[in-house]
Design a protein around this nucleic acid. Sequence first.
RNA 1: GCCCAUGUAGCUCAGUCGGCAGAGCACAUCCUUGGUAAGGAUGAGGUCACCGGUUCGAUCCCGGUCAUGGGCUCCA
Length: 637
Amino acid sequence: MEVVEIRILIEGKTYEAAGAAEAEKLLKQRGAFAIMAGGQPRDLSFISQARADGEVEGLTFGSKEGRDIYRHSTAHILAHAVRELFPDARFAIGPAIEDGFYYDFDVPAPFTPEDLDAIEKRMLEIIKRDSPFVRREMKRGEALEMFGRMGETYKTELLESMQDDTVSIYEEGGFTDLCRGPHVPSAGAIKAVKLLSVAGAYWRGDEKRKMLQRIYGTAFSSASELKKHLERLEEIKKRDHRKLGRELDLFSMNEEVGPGLILWHPNGAIIRKTIEDFWREEHLKAGYKLLYSPHMARLDLWKTSGHWDFYRENMYSPMKVEEVEYEIKPMNCPFHIAVYKSGLKSYRELPVRYAELGTVYRFERSGVLHGLMRVRGFTQDDAHIFAREDQIGEEIKNILDFTLFILNTFGFEDYDIYLSTRPEKYVGTEESWELATGALKAALEHKGLKYEVDPGEGVFYGPKIDIKVKDSLGRAWQCSTIQVDFNNPERFDVTYRGEDGRQQRPIMIHRALMGSLERFFGILIEHYAGAFPLWLTPVQVEVLTIAERHIDFARQVADNLRREGIRVEENFDNEKIGYKIRQSAVRKVPYSVIIGDKEVEERGTALSIRKRNGQSFGPFTLSALIDLLKEEIKTRR
RNA sequence: GCCCAUGUAGCUCAGUCGGCAGAGCACAUCCUUGGUAAGGAUGAGGUCACCGGUUCGAUCCCGGUCAUGGGCUCCA
C-alpha cells in the first residue's frame, strides 16, 4: 500500500506527514482538534480520507472556526450532563456564540443556580471520562424515527424543516445528539469550562412558542485563558454605566418618574452640556442650521409621515386636545420637513441641512429597558439633509467625514461599518436606489473604510450606512446611522424649484452621529470607565488643603482657576490629606492641587498637580498651570 | 410582553426556622491640624418596594402589583 504524503497547515505553518495516522498525531500534537478540508470543516478523523494532493488545515482554538467547534462540542457535553442529571429534559439547540455557547432545554422546572453547579461538575466528570465523539450518518427518515422514539420533539421538528436527505448524528459516551458537526475527537479535548447563567429563551426565538431554559457557558483551551476571560467579565461589570452612574452621581432613574426615563444629575448634565456645545459648534461649522421642534404634534402629521401605519407599536397612545388627537413624537423628521416647507426652496439653496438635538419618546416593552442604553425617552442628535440627486455623493462623503471626526473626538478609533441595501419591499425607483447605494459605497471606499454589505437590510425607504464604535474593551455599540430616504419627500410633497423652473423632488438624508445622547453617554461611561478626559469630566480640578491655615490661599487658587472657566471644587474638609486624595481618586477627578505651608509661602509660584493615576507634575506657576489645563481642555485629549 | 432571580438606611449588603431591625461606607457633631489613596469618638438615619391574605402577631409564609437584573424578541 502506498503511503500518502499529506501537507498540513497549522496556524500559518506547513508540515508534511506520511500517512493519515502520522498526520493525525501531528495535528493533535499541535493543538488541532478538527480540520478544514476542501473548504469544509471536518472531524479530525476525516484525515483518513485525505488525498496526497490535498492540503488540510488543522483547526485550533486560535481560529474562529476552531473556537466555535470547540465550544460547540462543549455545548454537547453540557447536554450530556443535563441528560444524566435530568432524564426528563428534552433538547433543543446548542450552538457556539461569541465568547461561548448555550444549549436550550425543555425541562419540567427551571434550573436553579445549584443545578448549574451540579451540571458543571458533571460536565467535568464527562470530560474526564474522555469518550470519543463518533459521527454517524443516516437517512433523514431514519433519524426522524429514532428521535421520535426518544420523544425528542424539538429534534424531530428540526429534522422536518431540513432539506438534506442524509443527516448526521454524534454519539459521545452513550449520549446521542443530532448535529452537523464537526466535533473535537473526544470529550477530554475540552480543557476549561464554566457555566455562566440560566435564562428563558423562546423555542426558535418565537414568543408565541414555548419558553425553554437556556444555559450559557464558555470554554477555553486552558484554565489561564478561562481565568482571563472571567476577569474581563469582572472588568465589564466594574465599568457598568449603571453602577458608575450611581457612584459618580451622573444620572438616575426613579420608580415614581417611570421606567426608561432618565434624570440627569448635575455631574451628568455638565457632561451632556459639554457634548451638546461641542456638537452645535461643529454643526454650525459644517454648514448645518440648528432647529428646535415641539414634543408633540397632531396625529395627522404622523399619518402623513407613515409612522402611524408602520411604527405604531413603538408610539404612545394619542391624547385628545380640544377634540383633536395629538401624539408625543417618536421621530423628529416631520418637523424638519415642515420647516423646509415653510418657504419655497430654490435649487441654489440646496443642500439644506437641518440639525436638532431632538427629544423623542418611544414605547419599549418593559423587559428590554436597560440603563441608559435602552430607554423610553431620549434625545437624538438628529439631522435631515435635503439635497438634489447630483449632490448626494458629495453630501454622503461630508457626513461620513463629519461622523468619524465626532466619534474620534470621543476616543473611538475602531468601527464596524455596515451598508444595507434594497430590501424586497421598497419605495422609490430602482435607479434611485442604485444611485443612492452607489453613493454610500463610493463614500466608504473614498475614505478607504472597511465595511460589510447587509444585503436587503435597508429600510423600505432607502439604503443606509450603520456605524458601530468599538469601545476600549473592544465591544461594538451601534451609534451612527446615515439613511437615504425617497419616501418622505414624496409623502409630504417636498419640492424645490429646479434650474429649469419646474418643481423638483429633493432626496432626504437622515443621520444621527451619536445616535441618542443617553445611550452615547452610557457608552462613554463604560469606554472611559468613568475616568472622563479633562474636557468632559464634571470636576476638572480639586483644590485640597493640608491644614486649616491654608484655606484662605487655597480659596484664592480655586477662584483663579474658576475665573478661567475651569471646573474647580474645593475640599477644605477637616481631614488628613491622604483621605482627601483618596476622595478625589474615588470621584475620578483628573487633577488635584494640594495647598500646604510650602505653597502658601511661595505664593503660587510653585504649584504641583497630582493626576488621578497618582503621578505628580510640576512645579508650575499659577498661570502656567492654567495654560496647561486650558490647552488640554482645548485639544479634548 | 414572556421565563427566572432580586427588592431591608443615601450606597454595598447581613439578618429574623413568624415575636422591639443590623454592619461597613456616606452624612452630622466633637477631638485631632495631620504633606500625596481610608486618624479617632459620638450621633442621626428604616412604613424591611407597594397592596391584600393567613396568623394572637408578618420584614419573614401565601397571592397580586410595581420596579430592577440576566435572557428571549426588538432597537438609538
